[in-house]
Simulated scan of single mutants.
Amino acid sequence: MYKSVYHDINHFEMEPVGDLEINDDEVLLKMQVCGLCGTDIHKAVDKTVQTPITLGHEIAGEIIKAGSSVEGFKAGDRVFLAHHVPCFTCTYCKRGHYSLCPQFKVTNVDPGGFSELIRVPALHVKHTMGKIPDDMNFETGAMVEPLACCLHGFEQIRMHPGDNVLILGSGQIGCLQVQLANHFLADRVIVSDVNPYRLKKAQAVGATDIINAAEDDVIKTVKDLTGGRGADIVIISAGIGALLQDAVNCVARGGTVLVFAPFPKKDIPIPAYRFFEDEISIVGAYSSTPYNYTPALELLKKGVIDVQEMVTHRFPLSELNDAISLAHDTTKEALKVLIVPDEGR
């Protein structure tokens, strides 16, 4: 069994996983699918993590061994998995900010999702692992975690039936958010991007209007589409600082901007008068919480969210760097990229 280890920009090595011993309250998982997340791409392209490290966290696989004290799971079970677990008792957790918990980021699976074999610690077995239904494939199961993140974002906004929603960025997350906005009864779901292929994908999963930001004035077009009001909800789903300015200029009076992508750590000027005069809100959402996984799974089970329409590429684990290069190139016709184990290694 092998893992893909990130050493440097454009430098991944396939290395043996070695012996992964599990405790009585842990499980050993064979990875079947691991989705390539935008944060994985950001970490690899910009080297924002200490190396060597095995990335990946949108995991679906099969349990090959369960510890003697594990309840509810057994060898042969097909499961999805998320990588961080809050403590549920700190000040942040008590206020409902589970992803801000000091324990959250220090918990992880071993060695990471881009590994053919994964040790699932006890906290993850208890709080972030769930069974994939028999009639659901591993690819859909791997989408539970990113969909849960999107649900966490929608928890931060006060969306009403009939709202106009603008999504800045039509990548994999943007396409999930399009479908959620429709599920929560949006009137118009407007999507902007510079990639025509991704805009067509957004339209295919339910966007009512698309804007090519490389050709059209996003702010003017949004105002035209909404009768001059602007969008009640604006979701930033691409890590481009200038989009915050566009979002604040596009949001309607009384509306909300959701920041759902990491920005560079530098100041971004915005028209701050709108907070007082127009009662706009800007909120952020990072990752997911254990309470988002069941709703995400149910939305997938019931076909409310179509993820197969989004999947464009599948790469073997040994070609992870090529997968990241493709997904990072905004000129390519790629949306959701999945990583699968190498056959016959």
Results as ranks from 00 to 15, higher is better:
residue 4 S to K: 13
residue 5 V to T: 14
residue 6 Y to N: 02
residue 8 D to G: 07
residue 11 H to Y: 00
residue 13 E to M: 07
residue 13 E to F: 04
residue 13 E to C: 13
residue 17 V to S: 05
residue 23 N to K: 15
residue 24 D to K: 06
residue 24 D to F: 10
residue 30 K to Q: 15
residue 34 C to N: 15
residue 41 I to S: 05
residue 56 G to Y: 06
residue 58 E to W: 08
residue 63 I to D: 05
residue 65 K to N: 11
residue 70 V to I: 00
residue 73 F to S: 01
residue 73 F to K: 04
residue 79 V to L: 11
residue 101 C to F: 05
residue 105 K to C: 05
residue 107 T to F: 09
residue 109 V to D: 02
residue 115 S to L: 12
residue 117 L to M: 10
residue 124 H to N: 12
residue 131 K to C: 04
residue 134 D to W: 00
residue 135 D to W: 03
residue 135 D to H: 12
residue 138 F to C: 07
residue 151 L to T: 04
residue 153 G to R: 06
residue 155 E to Q: 14
residue 158 R to L: 02
residue 159 M to S: 05
residue 160 H to A: 06
residue 161 P to S: 11
residue 161 P to T: 09
residue 161 P to V: 12
residue 164 N to V: 15
residue 165 V to N: 01
residue 173 I to Q: 08
residue 177 Q to L: 07
residue 180 L to H: 07
residue 182 N to P: 12
residue 185 L to K: 06
residue 189 V to L: 04
residue 190 I to A: 13
residue 197 Y to V: 10
residue 198 R to K: 05
residue 200 K to C: 03
residue 200 K to S: 15
residue 211 I to E: 07
residue 213 A to E: 09
residue 214 A to N: 12
residue 216 D to C: 08
residue 218 V to E: 03
residue 220 K to M: 00
residue 224 D to M: 09
residue 224 D to F: 01
residue 230 G to K: 06
residue 231 A to Y: 02
residue 236 I to K: 05
residue 244 L to V: 15
residue 248 V to M: 14
residue 248 V to P: 01
residue 267 D to K: 13
residue 269 P to V: 03
residue 275 F to H: 01
residue 275 F to Q: 03
residue 286 Y to K: 15
residue 287 S to H: 15
residue 289 T to F: 00
residue 296 A to D: 14
residue 296 A to L: 03
residue 299 L to W: 12
residue 300 L to T: 11
residue 307 V to H: 10
residue 315 F to S: 10
residue 321 N to T: 13
residue 321 N to E: 14
residue 322 D to M: 00
residue 326 L to N: 05
residue 327 A to R: 00
residue 331 T to H: 06
residue 332 K to H: 10
residue 344 G to F: 09
